[in-house]
Design a protein around this nucleic acid. Structure first.
Lengths: 158, 158
DNA sequence: CTTATTGAGGATGCTTTTATCTTGTTTCAG
DNA sequence: CTGAAACAAGATAAAAGCATCCTCAATAAG
């Protein structure tokens, strides 16, 4: 659904938001979010070009949040990395489907729509954990493991 | 959101559903759905192993639908190709987040949940076009072009 | 000014996904 | 039985995503 790089970006944005204005070096961010230091820099550069963070070079430098955590939505942040585009016209270029997508693409676009809505409904501030609840990642390097659910309706235990 | 291979799979399943029981060769399917013939076979094999289609070898053979178009959901079909997994436990393996995901992963899982719901709400039959409305793909090879929407609420013109 | 610190950005390599190629097996017609 | 039609499956190749490495530029301390 979203790329691993996009998840890294979200983790680092959360870490920066929790740092509350204080600059963090790429090394610190990488360690806190369990992202490799080299790759973290690359992602932070993309976030910088999108104006979500500001970088300060040299001694005492680092990265600081450059947006209001209550304003920046998950959708905004994810889309810095993943296009996550709505389907605007027939991907196959069929003229008769312009302005009126076929059932397949209309459905896929609708799915993208609900995904957009969901990701837009949450801000960076919503993802900040309280002081006692550390974010998922603080220097515990572990392999990524994810499992599958069969066919259960909705199931939002949150 | 979903891979191009998954979209190919959906296109071919629609073409098979519209063929109404009549077997279609991989060549015919590839042509109708604008997928390369070689790659189409690979995807059809995956759909066959998942029991959504049945293959008949030899002269006069081809692929036939092996499921009820009203029963097979988009979710079922897409997941033959893309895992599209819910997040069951902390992807970073943090013990304190097992059974209770952190805000980030809870949110990403919720987004995956609404995507599941949306894709599960539609069946293969829902994607079949009427006789006058040909599916998006009938031998018009054109590059895939998709565009982006800025920040517009919901926007389900469907 | 020199040096240490820190981000910027290009080059490179590894892995996964996407796509193609080649060989084999099944099936039917003649 | 032979040959053509058609799927099966492994090997290979090309492209995209993920990750690392190296050199350069900016900044601050001494």
């Amino acid at each position: 659904m979203i790329s691993t790089t996009a998840e890294y970006a979200l983790r680092m944005m959360i870490a920066l938001a929790e740092a509350d204005g204080q600059p963090l070096t790429s090394e610190q961010l990488a360690h806190r979010t369990d992202v490799s230091a080299d790759y973290a820099v690359k992602i932070l550069q993309q976030l910088g070009r999108a104006r979500f963070v500001r970088a300060q070079r040299g001694r005492g430098g680092g990265f600081r949040l450059a947006c209001d955590p209550h304003e920046a939505t998950l959708l905004d942040l994810v889309r810095v990395i993943d296009p996550l585009d709505r389907i605007m016209g027939c991907p196959l270029g069929r003229v008769e489907h312009e302005g009126r997508l076929c059932a397949l693409h209309a459905s896929l676009d609708r799915a993208m729509g609900v995904l957009h809505d969901e990701l837009r409904s949450l801000s960076l501030a919503d993802l900040m954990e309280g002081p006692g609840q550390p974010m998922c990642a603080n220097g515990t390097p572990t392999p990524l493991t994810v499992q599958s659910t069969a066919r259960n309706g909705s199931d939002r235990s949150n």
